[in-house]
Every structure is written in structure tokens, then in C-alpha cells.
Design a binder for these strands. Sequence first.
DNA 1: CGTGGACCTGGTCTC
DNA 2: AGTCGCAGGTCCACT
Length: 478
Amino acid sequence: MPGDPAAAPAPLPPPPPPSAAAGPAWRLLGTSREQLCLEFTLPTGQSFRWRRTGGGEFTGVVGRRVFQLRQDGGGGGDVAWRVIGRARGEDEARDEEALAEYLNLGVDLAALYAEWAAADARFAKVAPLIPGARMMRQDPVECLFQFICSQNNHISRIHGMVERLCSTYGTPLPLIDAGGGDVAEAAARAEQQQQQQQPAWEVGRKRSLSEVEAAACATAGGPGGGGPLAPEPEGDGGSGSGGDEAPGTPRGAAAAPPPSGDAPPPRRGRKGARAGGAAAERDAPSSSSGSSGGAGGETTAPEPFAAGAAAAAAAAAAAAGAAHFAFPTLDQLSAATEEELRALGFGYRSKFITGAAAALRARPGGGDAWLRALRGATAAEAAAALEELPGVGPKVAACVALFSLDKHDAIPVDTHVWQLATKYYARHLAGKSLTKKLHPEVAAAFVARFGERAGWAHSVLFISNLRQSQALMAGAGD
DNA sequence: CGTGGACCTGGTCTC
DNA sequence: AGTCGCAGGTCCACT
């Protein structure tokens, strides 16, 4: 534990007023921009659970808490945070501890940057443009399934898939100050909104905003003030068409993807699937899967069947940005069927998700514990163990190892990293094609250069490469 | 053992 | 309004 990383000299003024007027008070994390830059940490592909919610603010779920983070644009770049949602049973007093662990705040990132810059001239050149790119420490289960979704896929779509996974199978997280605090109510309200077909949560997604803020983060000079890009004035309230439906009826099945053109249409939505196909065995009420053990304990009944009903409303709520969900547990995930996931748009990854969930649950001691135990294993052992799971190859295994299992020297070798490697750090591999056997070799090259936290260093280079390829670094001098 | 395809889908780049 | 052997891979079938 390298002491307090930040060492911000002056106690910064209270954080700027966030977009949302009301809500819990904001608190400062006590970090500097060099220790933690949200722009280079949250939306760079480590996790797909963070969204921009306007004006430089990020909203995301950590464990069973909904956090909002924002970076002080002017001064030292301290990060303001607050919790706007929390599962019952989670202690408010441990909010900050949970966030600090998730953000790996015990690691002195500025010191590492200095080491890496000394070891590599190329790093020294690009790093100043990308300060505070920090590795997070995610929950292994959450991380694993996110990256199973990531294969051969667009980042934007991965976000949507992860969102649907959570809203369909995960536990809703009640908002604090949500007026009444009843999730069902919020979900119902959201469902009404959802009928207006308005993807409010897309506000601020991608767009050049990221570029603006990236610049702001890198220069620390001009906060730019890209404007709080106000969402469409839909407002929330609106048409109180008083629930025309019983809360229990998952009319939200409409949220399912539209029928594809040619392929054998997988019915639609969870409900359609049941009603359409096996009318005979429909509703054979959870007889088999009902007793999934007392794990859940939530009042929302994580049972498969109930999940369907709750899921629709939940998905609607999520679509309207009105609710947040914990990432589904393995038990909750086990309620998913391949057919259902396909209807939710997971494509051929559906069988990987159900397969991996089943394989994990079959592990002695439970999949969650099995995964966590890999934190004590070597990088090679962890990778080998992860690759036993369906849908997990070397790249996904490395992502999970680096982003959730403390394997700080793991290098996820994708097409971008392969380019970096053959160009700068493992030139002898140039011309070859990336085979499974070459992954360790590429990783070794990065470790040889950057040391035991090569995975962290790789992230900086990766981001730099992305930015460059997107011509976002234009004018940054070259 | 290394290589070539197939694989769901939809955002992005072009007619 | 269409298109892409695409897109931060993996699995499977062959040579």
C-alpha cells in the first residue's frame, strides 16, 4: 500500500453542482488527475457498466451500489462521488471503501507512470496525454460475462447487451431519495415512459463528447464546458396513464428485439418464447427450477419464472434510465436459457453464457468462490482455468485476469495490442498471424518492457492507440 | 499443431 | 437507405 496516492495539497472546494439537483451529497475522493482520470478509466473498455449521465458525470454500478462520479475540471482533478442507489443490507458506511477497492486506489499510479516512462521512450511520449488511466478491480463474475459478450463485437453493442443482462436477470437497486423508494413503482413508471419508445439512457453516449472531455482531462487546463447536453425535454413524468395493466403482467415483452428478417425468428422476448412454443409446457410453474436454494433472499424473487415478470418491467425501467441493477449472480444467471438470450440479442454468444454459467455452478464450492480463488493463482494458472469455460479464449481470459483477478501482468492481446506488439515491443512477430500460442509471447514482451504491472501500462498504450486511430489526438504534436 | 470459416447483430461508412 | 468474409474472438473442422 503505497500510502495515500493523491497528496492533493489544498482542500478543494466542494464539487460542482451535478446535473441532478437533488440527491445525496457529493464527497471528494482525495485523488489527483494523475492518480485517477475518469475519462481514461471508466469508458475505455475495462467495464461496460458506466454511462455518461451528462456534464462529465458518470453513473455506474459497483457491486450492489449505484455510484455517480465526476471529475473536478479545474483544480487538481479530484473526483467527487456519491451513491444514489443501494441494495438493502448494504451499509452506507462502507460506500467509500467499496469504491476505493473497485478503483484500486491503493496503487500509486503516478509512480508507475514514472517507471514506465523511464523504461520506454514511446510510453514517455504518449503517457502525458493519457494521465490517470487506472485499472479497476471488478467482480470476477461480472467481468467474465461482460467479456464473453465482447467477442467479435462492437463496444456500443456490448454496452447494450450487458445492460439487458443486468436488467433482465439482476437485482434492482432502489434509488435513494427515490420518493417512496419502491422499485416496482419506479419500474412501472418507467414502463409507461418506455411506451414512448424513448431511449433516454442514450443521452450523451459516444458522440464527440468523449473527445471533448478527453481533452479536458488530458490538459487539465480547459474544462471546456462542453455543456451539460441536456437530454430531450421529455421530462419524466408526463402522461400518467395510470397503470393500465397489472404490475405483474410483463407487457414489456415488447422490449425484445424486432423480428429479424430471414433467420428463423426466435419468437420474441421471453414471454413470446414461452407462449409461442411450448404452449403445452408453458407455465409448468417453475416446478423444476423453483427451488434454487435460499441464496437469493431478495423479495424480488430471483426465481426464473418471477424473473420473467420482473424482468420485463425491469428492462423497461432500464430502458428509460429510471433504474439500476446489480450484475446478476450465477444463481440468477442460471435462470437464463439460450433461446431467451438469443431473443435478447446475444446471438451465438448465448450458448457461451449459459454454458459458462452452468460450468461455474458445477465447480466445487461454487463458481463465485472458484473464480475468486484464482486471485491467488499465477497468471498462467488463472488463464488456463478460465479458458476451460465456453466462450473464453486467451483474450477474454486475459481481460478477466487483469480486470478482476489481480493479474496485473496479464495482457489482453486483441487486434490493437497485436499491432502495438508487432510494431514496437515484439517486432520479431511482425508478419505472423496471431495464434493462440503467440499470446503468451506477446504478453512476455510487454512484461519484459514494463514489469510486473505491464497490464496497467498496456492499457495506457491501448488507449493511446485507440485515440490515435480515431484521429482524436490530432494536433497533439507528432 | 497451425489455418480457414462460420457466427449474431447493428453502428458506421458509402452509395 | 443499404453495406461490411466489419467489430477489442472463439470454436470447430481439417490439413
